[in-house]
């Protein structure tokens, strides 16, 4: 009988996902605090663009960027670029 490893147990995978999803939510909440603190000048915030101050700008950008990346790769680039593994040898 082989040794059981961490992610062999579905409960551990579920735990990891729970921790991950909570972190994501916590980050958005922290962003709210940060915006409030910087608007009230408790802490100084250095920004180059106005949109950086919007709530969740980086979160939104990161998420959308990756979705676009995957969709473009899958539905546009792959159909164009994919060939048999021995394409160049033929």
């Amino acid at each position: 009988m082989e040794k059981k490893h961490v992610f062999d147990d579905p409960r551990n995978v579920k735990r990891l996902l729970t921790v991950f999803f909570s972190t994501v939510v916590i980050l958005l909440i922290l962003d709210v605090f940060y915006i409030v603190l910087s608007k009230t000048h408790v802490i100084h915030r250095h920004v180059n663009y106005k949109w950086e101050e919007f709530w969740g700008f980086y979160a939104f950008y990161g998420f959308v960027a990756c979705v676009i990346l995957v969709l473009v790769s899958k539905y546009i680039l792959r159909p164009l670029a994919k060939r048999e593994e021995d394409y160049y040898d033929k």
């Binding site: 991950f20 999803f21 972190t23 994501v24 980050l27 958005l28 962003d31 969740g56 980086y58 979160a59 939104f60 950008y61 990161g62 998420f63 960027a65 990756c66």
Partner: peptide, 8 residues
């Protein structure tokens, strides 16, 4: 934020 939402 950027990285975690990419991971999401």
């Amino acid at each position: 934020e950027l990285l975690f939402f990419s991971a999401l």
